[in-house]
Design a binder for these strands. Sequence first.
DNA 1: CAAATAGTGTCTGTTAGACACTATCAC
DNA 2: GTGATAGTGTCTAACAGACACTATTTG
Lengths: 247, 247
Amino acid sequence: MKNPKPQTEQEFLETYDPNIFPHPSLSVDVAMLTVRQRSLEVLVIKRTEHPFKDRYTLPGGFVHLDETLDQAAARLLKAKTGLDNVFLEQLYTFGRLDRDPRTRVISVAYYALVNTERLEALENTDTIRLARVEVPWLGEVGGKVQIRLEKQNHDLAFDHGEILGTAVKRIRGKLDYAPIGFQLLPERFTLRQLQDVHETILARGVNKDSFRRRMLASEQLEATGALESGVDYRPAEFYTFKSPSAL
Amino acid sequence: MKNPKPQTEQEFLETYDPNIFPHPSLSVDVAMLTVRQRSLEVLVIKRTEHPFKDRYTLPGGFVHLDETLDQAAARLLKAKTGLDNVFLEQLYTFGRLDRDPRTRVISVAYYALVNTERLEALENTDTIRLARVEVPWLGEVGGKVQIRLEKQNHDLAFDHGEILGTAVKRIRGKLDYAPIGFQLLPERFTLRQLQDVHETILARGVNKDSFRRRMLASEQLEATGALESGVDYRPAEFYTFKSPSAL
DNA sequence: CAAATAGTGTCTGTTAGACACTATCAC
DNA sequence: GTGATAGTGTCTAACAGACACTATTTG
């Protein structure tokens, strides 16, 4: 066999010749979102190499032959952040011709939801950071979205701004009918915290009374009986998410 | 250069060696749906070669280097059916390890919606056919779905039954908030026809009064003033779909 | 005329939003 | 006590479902 097997992704990109193998290669990118202090944040990584040197990207990498797409997304997230057992869902597959200037790469995008507590440990490793998601207009998404770091807006590298915009749009839509808000909170949380998460994601206020009624009527919350403490107002009750398997 | 460039997809599969190029290849599959006589139908193709010889599949093929995913889906649909300008939307990307027994192939699935009139011409070309979609339970989808041909249920080849199930689930969900029913009807249609389409897709009756009110309130329909003729009951008025650009 | 479906008017139950009110904490 | 938020009760407007009714065609 003439061609040696590329040992790294970098090697692969150097030896790749579209004339020999005229098919696109396949990567996975993950928009890992969290809510912290009423702001929606995303995990980004600073590139150290050309192209887009010193620009920020979403964590990602190539799909291996011996893993499914879900497994690839989980593997990459674990490799870049150390986090395991994260809520992860396929988002959309991006295939623009020029989305990677080196070669034709199609990317299966995922989004992940993690509560902030789990991210405290790894935050600000210089290259890996949490950036605020800057949704341009009052709710108009679908297009490109910027991130905010050090009081400045930045465009993400490649088409990752578009991926991020799609992720925000998706979770906004899902919030209505799927219990995804819980993924962004600790195990025990108050209704006010849950409402804050919804308001942050939707970037608008929601009606308090109606929100409480809907959540309690959904039968997905379980009252713990325990109360907040240390707050200088009436303490709220803690709830937990009742998993669907318990129904 | 030692290796000659494969000229066809068949050649590619014969010469492909995962040790030399350890990345999955990428195909597009399309679930083209239509509604005919109150039954939901899908376009299937009978395979003539191993594997799954004589079994039915969804139309599909490999993604070329010089086309986007949307373009690939449109090209394949045009190649297999002759149809152009079809409503086409990305569905989900399937990446099970064993979904193709020959080699690792990841498939970006699309669904298409076409009104039956446009399919009359090509129907029953022996290898290319319209098959009834057999949704197993009363609305429970997400899993595998079978097709019905010649009074018999068949499993689709590869994981195409799963793709079809995902497509049905998706359009059921979209029906509530997106004007996709129009894609399955001729340019002029009555409210009854539109309701039939909805009922067929949802596999359940919908409230007539409420359906009319919702559709008329949606501001997406335009009355033409023209009436049905040749029916032996009071003729209904024809409506057209008001395109969003006109708003 | 009867039969069949198109289309309208109205009532009712459910639910979101609004508002007023009470409850419970820190200070 | 005050100030702040948690949580409850009730009214109202909007809307889906149900039903009754009228309208218009064919035969």
